[in-house]
Design a protein around this nucleic acid. Structure first.
Length: 251
DNA sequence: AACTGACCGGATGTTACATCA
DNA sequence: ACTGATGTAACATCCGGTCAG
């Protein structure tokens, strides 16, 4: 039955009850996670119809536990994946017992395992299937464990980064709030200064407003001709209008 | 309490196959 | 009979959330 099942999967055939139904009980599909499939980074055209290392496809089903979503669309292999029956870490400790399937397995990675995983994560936060299998072999772990470790690591790294970003934004917000308060106070002070009555020149037509009350210089052509005004500036900007707030910054 | 390995459910993308015009 | 488009099933992988040691 295993052979038929695996062969069917290797050829991409869907067996009646396969996949979903076959997911119940100890899984017979002890395949590498990407076996029989051509992925983008595996540019090997023959992979779609061939199963590399077919001899490993008959791995033991001992300890195999599989889970399946309600809809049956997704089946996960919690059990050993291809030829990994012996890959359970001999150094890791944890609840290996799975008497009724309800106890959650949990091991503790060794320092060496963690260090190597961290190193690889620093290089790349994701692994392709080949890298995953190779790393699992190197660590004496199941590929699934390596995969889960990377998933958790990504999630927790993202969480930490989110916290850092949140803290940064919080400080930005505080800074801006304080700045806003300061500017509001400044504005309030400026507004409370008794504004002088509008000078007579403010009531005159714009064409006549050519004298700056602050410096008493003529604006327009006269000032420009005197070399007091940047000739590149627009002509309108060369007029010396009185600004009660800035005391005529134009001067 | 914090950390962390494992799991679940949903989403998404890929591939093979079946069907139909 | 052949072909391209489309739908479906199976699967892998990822993520967010959660459980539990």
């Amino acid at each position: 039955q295993e052979e038929v099942h695996d062969a069917g999967l290797a050829l991409g055939l869907s067996l009646g009850g396969g996949g979903g139904g076959g997911g119940d009980g100890p899984s017979s599909a002890h395949r590498s996670s990407n076996s029989g499939r051509l992925t983008l980074w595996e540019a090997e055209p023959s992979l779609t119809l061939s199963m590399p290392d077919d001899t490993t496809m008959t791995g033991t089903a001992s300890g195999g536990v599989s889970s399946m979503s309600v809809g049956g669309a997704v089946k996960r292999e919690r059990a050993d994946e291809a030829d990994l029956g012996e890959m359970v870490s001999s150094t890791a400790v944890g609840a290996e017992e799975d008497d009724d399937g309800s106890t959650r397995k949990k091991l503790r990675l060794t320092k060496e395992q963690s260090a190597l995983l961290e190193d690889r994560f620093k290089e790349h936060s994701t692994l392709n299937p080949k890298q995953k299998v190779a790393l699992a072999k190197q660590l004496n772990l199941r590929p699934r464990q390596v995969e889960v470790w990377f998933q958790n690591r990504r999630a927790r790294t993202k969480l930490k980064q989110t916290e850092v970003d949140c803290e940064f934004l919080k400080r930005c917000c505080e800074t801006l709030t304080e700045e806003n308060r300061r500017l509001q106070r400044e504005l309030q002070e400026l507004r409370t200064i008794k504004a002088p009555p509008a000078p007579f020149y403010m009531q005159l037509p714009a064409a006549t407003l050519t004298i700056c009350p602050s410096c008493e210089r003529l604006g327009g052509t006269a000032a420009t001709a005197a070399g007091k005004v940047d000739p590149d500036r627009p002509k309108a900007a060369t007029h010396h209008f009185f600004n009660p707030f800035t005391h005529s910054a134009a001067c």
